[in-house]
Design a protein around this nucleic acid. Sequence first.
DNA 1: CCAAAAACTGACTGACCATTCAGCCGCCGC
DNA 2: GCGGCGGCTGAATGGTCAGTCAGTTTTTGG
Lengths: 211, 211
Amino acid sequence: MAPRPKISRKRRQEILEAAVETIVERGVCKARIADVADRTGTSAALVLYYFESKDRLLTEALAYAEDRFYLAIFAELTTLKSASEKLVRLIELSCGHEAMAPVLRDDFALWIELWSRALRDDAAAKKRAAGDRRWRATIADIVREGQSAGEFDAVDVEDFAMHLACLLDGIAVQHVLGDPEADYERARRICVCMASESLGFGVPALVTAKV
Amino acid sequence: MAPRPKISRKRRQEILEAAVETIVERGVCKARIADVADRTGTSAALVLYYFESKDRLLTEALAYAEDRFYLAIFAELTTLKSASEKLVRLIELSCGHEAMAPVLRDDFALWIELWSRALRDDAAAKKRAAGDRRWRATIADIVREGQSAGEFDAVDVEDFAMHLACLLDGIAVQHVLGDPEADYERARRICVCMASESLGFGVPALVTAKV
DNA sequence: CCAAAAACTGACTGACCATTCAGCCGCCGC
DNA sequence: GCGGCGGCTGAATGGTCAGTCAGTTTTTGG
């Protein structure tokens, strides 16, 4: 109805961030517009002025969080030279390395919220699918890079990416739900072993023991 | 308040099943007591007579579904002799093999609902953790069985179980969210390859190609 | 300085739904 | 043939919120 007026990017992002925090705190289902408004110090009506409905707001907020998470990881990876370093770092960050920015630690929980939303919300489903494709492509690129450099063996890149991505998702679930048997060290070891064995690269100072 | 009267097991289970269907259809958040009542052909008040609150009902329903899923898979596994057959079958069923009972195909979605609920509901978190432990123990038992029989190599059983369980969880997410790149055949191949390579067992008539 | 647009707000309303309650029915033992 | 109880119900009750609206303040461009 409202023909979407030109809108301040800044305020919009402020609200998105508040929405993310609200979701982290209360969960998507229980999140209220009023919570988001309180957090930004404005009114509920304003939130609906920027986003047409609660549904849209929440879906956008989840996508926003995923994007932020991806970009943060991606940025860190580009500082590394070798493909194996990148891959190991990617694994470490996905397993919840302590050095990760605190904001991003909540993102694992947000994945689950996004998945559950994607079961019924079409927009969320699309965003999730796109995010996952990008994530797997990132892994695949690193693997191809390593193969070109002679660091990695010649395995099927797409299958490896799918394997690692799914494994990391599963690990993240355990991690965020606080399974005591899935602590960081162990999760990291399992994933790094899987990668180094599949791709045939050595991992110098790593807890590769207990193979 | 109500000191839980003796209650018909049958009716209770009927309601649980109706609740599971409702959750599948509408999602946990959107599930209404009235839906469950309609489905059992009774009244909303009765549902609350059997379960003290909506929250309890939904959590119990999710646990009930997980249990049913586990028991169905477990039953099928016991009909198989060798450990490698069991493991492959377990993988196939977890990847959404078509031969699976239709009711159980919804269960992947219910896992996600359970996870999201477990983020904030303590009872759900406990049930989920217990279910996961049982699931990993089942995998571990099969591996030990195969190792004793000389079918499998001597790898760390617990790590393997964690690895496979997480991988299957990740695969299930892709599967249930309808990722076109994660079709059954591919998911199965990835998981079976991972198992057969880790444990060193041969898989005769399998699509192990494209390793 | 002055419109006109944009940003913003408080108060309202209209659904929606979990939960409560007061009591009805039909069975069972006596 | 009745007293009581477990199983069951319909009709309130009450709280919670998304979304609307009519209007106020702030910004902006001329």
